[in-house]
């Protein structure tokens, strides 16, 4: 056990955990409402979309790739699903299926293009971001969908607890989505052979091919999974927003990337954990929420977020430099 805690402290996740804990302690002392149940529920709900996407993007980053197009995939998925839901009498299962199919299709297109064009994944997905988003805006003329089916607007809420003042505390669709995305991703990465193959692919692509990993097939799965998660996240977001706007999501892709990277995933592949990603999302969420509760004008929140990202990636890089110097000493 002491061994485990020591390892945790030396890992990126351990240090990040300390930072997050320090932030939580500070904010709960400095503000009344930060640690309240209602605030936590609000946070979970409003960060469900980026949190889910972070889980999907984590898988792509571990495999050594990157996806920029997922916000466009999500926009397409929710628009298609809600348009159909408004036209025909369909229910939750159908809507979920449609979002899944659209998201996965977008992901597979990415994987096929990356596998065949000889362009890096960042370039391909920047291009497909524009294609998906441009076509969506072209077809929809940028019109929002305000009227959603009643069953969808009402969503899935369970009142789990009512306090003395009669305020209900609810467990909602957004939380289910968020938890499901993290659990599913954790299972995929740590409990399956596919997960190990994804780490192996990101760690050394040539070696992965040599030991017999089918790289193209694995990439289909990785980007398909990212698309699937984007589809699910889009549904959760549409339910929360109570409307669908084709240009509401595009532009948020780099925020999600920032959260995953803060969580310790490496852009060169092979490194990253679900726990770290959760901490990365939490850090950004608590920071933005905390600034608001502390009474800092919301205009300044982005500036603080940027500073935290810059400090965090610099600290990570310095740590790596020190480690490399350490290895050199050992070898000498």
């Amino acid at each position: 056990m002491p061994d485990l805690s020591k390892r945790l402290l030396h890992s990126h996740e351990g240090k990040l955990l300390l930072v997050v804990l320090a932030l939580v302690i500070f904010l709960s002392l400095a503000t009344k409402s930060f640690l309240s149940l209602q605030n936590m529920i609000d946070l979970l709900t409003s960060y469900s979309f980026s949190g889910m996407l972070a889980a999907g993007l984590l898988v792509v980053l571990i495999s050594g790739g990157i996806d920029i197009s997922f916000t466009a995939s999500a926009s397409v998925a929710q628009y298609v699903a809600m348009t159909i839901a408004n036209q025909y009498h369909i229910g939750w299962i159908e809507v979920i299926l449609i979002c899944a199919v659209v998201g996965i299709a977008c992901g597979l297109i990415n994987a096929v293009l990356i596998g065949t064009l000889g362009l890096s994944s960042i370039i391909v997905t920047i291009a497909t971001l524009n294609v998906f988003f441009g076509l969506l805006m072209f077809v929809t003329h940028g019109n929002e969908i305000f009227a959603l089916p009643d069953w969808f607007v009402n969503g899935a809420n369970w009142v789990v607890y009512t306090d003395k003042q009669g305020n209900p505390y609810i467990f909602n669709l957004q939380m289910i989505g968020l938890i499901a995305a993290f659990v599913l991703t954790a299972l995929l990465l740590t409990r399956t052979n596919i997960g190990r193959q994804i780490y192996a692919l990101g760690s050394n692509k040539d070696a992965a091919q040599r030991v017999g990993i089918k790289v193209f097939r694995l990439n289909l799965l990785v980007y398909g999974y990212m698309g699937f998660v984007a589809g699910m996240a889009s549904l959760v977001q549409a339910q929360d927003a109570q409307s669908v706007s084709p240009n509401a999501l595009v532009g948020r892709e780099l925020d999600v990337l920032a959260a995953v990277v803060l969580g310790g995933a490496s852009l060169t592949g092979g490194v990253g954990t679900v726990f770290g990603t959760i901490l990365g999302v939490m850090l950004l969420a608590f920071l933005q929420n905390g600034l608001l509760l502390l009474g800092v004008q919301s205009y300044w929140s982005e500036c603080f977020t940027g500073a935290v990202i810059l400090i965090a990636v610099s600290a990570l890089a310095l740590e790596r430099q020190r480690q490399r110097a350490g290895v050199r000493r050992v070898m000498a």
Partner: peptide, 27 residues
């Protein structure tokens, strides 16, 4: 400086400054 002297990957360093610089402008 962050990229050359600290060895941060350009995409991450400039992602950070992008957010911060825009944040300053918005603020």
């Amino acid at each position: 400086t962050v990229i050359a002297y600290l060895g941060v990957s350009p995409i991450l360093a400039t992602l950070g400054t992008m957010t911060m610089v825009k944040g300053i402008a918005v603020g």
